[in-house]
Design a protein around this nucleic acid. Structure first.
Length: 301
DNA sequence: GTTGAGCGTT
């Protein structure tokens, strides 16, 4: 007969947790790992010999000793007894999440059929997970599709899955990638702890109040500047430079539109002064700037 | 009224 639960703990003197067994009396390693991430097996102290014994593990299934789990407390095994390492990894992922590395980005969708609409994209990608935004890029005059678009998901896991595979959309194979505007080097090599961000791809209906209202959620906003006449970008200044820096590289949805946040820089900043020790020389970095998609405003300092 | 590697702005 089977137990409903067995008792499992990380150490002998710690409080055990009840882990469900299967109908045949076995316990799945995955059930253990669900409560003890990184677990690779179980052991227990043999009451007769007082020695630790391993629990038989076959293809992810833990088998009860003597066909009965009894009333023992089982201890979790970690790889190479590397429990400390596991805790460090856990801590690292928490930091990652807190720092927002798990936030989703817009993905570029390459190779779309000319006929594919945003509704088609939404329908297709919704099968992977919740979709925040889809776009099909079109010629402004003719309205014809340019054959690529963008998609943004709620969950990072969904994004990872979508990037990892090819997509058959309306009869063509398409690829989803992180767009070049997010390669990340600008973020890594940007030491100017500016309090001001550059908000690209603004639409004309975005007012200073809209932007202020939106960016307030991240921290105190001290200034919003929108060039007139309309130039499809804006500047937002925060009281805290860390807030500004944290937003750089992000794609944010404002009034249903994906805007791109980057560092606000005066155009005529001397790159050789900013990066005197850049690997390969500051000239190579200047070339990267030139080739990049980053456009810095010319009239605002 | 076309096209098929790329990179988002009225």
């Amino acid at each position: 007969m089977s137990e409903l639960y067995i008792r499992v703990a990380e150490e002998e003197n710690e409080e055990p947790m009840e882990i469900p067994s299967e109908d045949d009396g076995t316990v799945l390693l995955s059930s253990v790992a669900a409560q003890f991430p990184g677990a690779c097996g179980l052991r227990y102290r043999n009451p007769e010999t007082q020695c630790m014994r391993g629990v038989r593990l076959v293809e992810g299934v833990l088998h009860p000793p003597e066909n009965d789990w009894g009333n023992l407390v089982y201890i979790v095994n970690y790889p190479k007894d590397n429990k400390r390492k596991m805790e460090e990894i856990d801590a690292a992922s928490v930091v990652k999440i807190k720092r927002g590395f798990q936030k989703t980005s817009d993905l570029i969708v390459l190779g779309l059929p000319w006929k594919t609409t945003e509704q088609d994209l939404k329908d297709y990608f919704s099968t992977f997970g919740e979709v925040i935004m889809v776009q099909v890029k079109r010629d402004a005059k003719t309205g014809n599709s340019k054959g690529f678009g963008f998609v943004r998901f709620t969950d990072y896991e969904t994004q990872t899955k979508v990037i990892a595979q090819r997509h058959m959309i309306d009869g063509r194979w398409c690829d989803c990638k992180l767009p070049n505007s997010k390669v990340g080097w600008a973020r890594l090599y940007h030491p100017m702890r500016s309090r001001k961000i550059f908000v690209g791809r603004c639409t004309e209906d975005m007012t200073t109040d809209d932007l202020r209202q939106y960016f307030m959620q991240y921290g105190e906003v001290t200034d919003v500047f929108i060039p007139k006449p309309f130039r499809a970008f804006a500047f937002v200044t925060f009281a805290d430079d860390q807030v500004a820096q944290a937003l750089c590289g992000e794609d944010l949805i404002i009034k249903g539109v994906s805007v791109h946040i980057s560092n606000a820089e005066p155009k005529h900043n001397n790159i050789h002064q900013l990066f005197p020790n850049f690997p390969g020389g500051s000239a190579s970095l200047a070339a990267m700037f030139d080739r990049s998609q980053y456009h810095f405003p010319s009239s605002h300092v």
